[in-house]
């Protein structure tokens, strides 16, 4: 086994997902099988190989710091599932 049900539960919490016991069991099997396959990467010696995180050699894309029109506040928040026209409303954070 590549990953335990406890680890799945811990990672799910980090990812802000709730999994029921059946989902944890299923996920443990499936993610375990995928990780077993991924172990194939260890067949390769990659000592000293520079990792690639981006396919093209682009460096920072700078632009002049000028103000350009952006979405008005009312447009920007209108998709909020709960909002009051000025701000998003969420359950109380500090009790």
């Amino acid at each position: 086994m590549q990953i335990t049900p406890e680890e799945i539960t811990k990672v799910a919490h980090l990812a802000r997902l709730d999994l029921n016991p059946a989902e944890v069991a299923h996920m443990t099997d499936q993610v375990g099988a995928i990780l077993t396959y991924i172990d194939k990467l260890n067949e390769l010696d990659t000592t000293g190989v520079t990792p690639t995180t981006h396919a093209l050699a682009i460096n920072n894309a700078f632009r002049d710091d000028v103000v350009i029109p952006s979405l008005p506040q009312s447009e920007a928040i209108k998709n909020g599932p709960k909002q009051n026209g000025e701000a998003f409303i969420v359950p109380k954070v500090i009790s």
């Binding site: 997902l17 993610v31 190989v49 990792p51 995180t53």
Partner: peptide
């Protein structure tokens, strides 16, 4: 989607980053 979020979160989580994400990015170079 949940499966891939779990897999990705695991690969980036503390203690596994070098074994998975860095390794995969090196293989990407190859």
């Amino acid at each position: 989607v949940k499966r891939r979020i779990i897999l990705g979160t695991y690969a980036l989580s503390s203690g596994y980053y070098d074994a998975y994400y860095k390794k995969a990015s090196q293989v990407r170079t190859k």
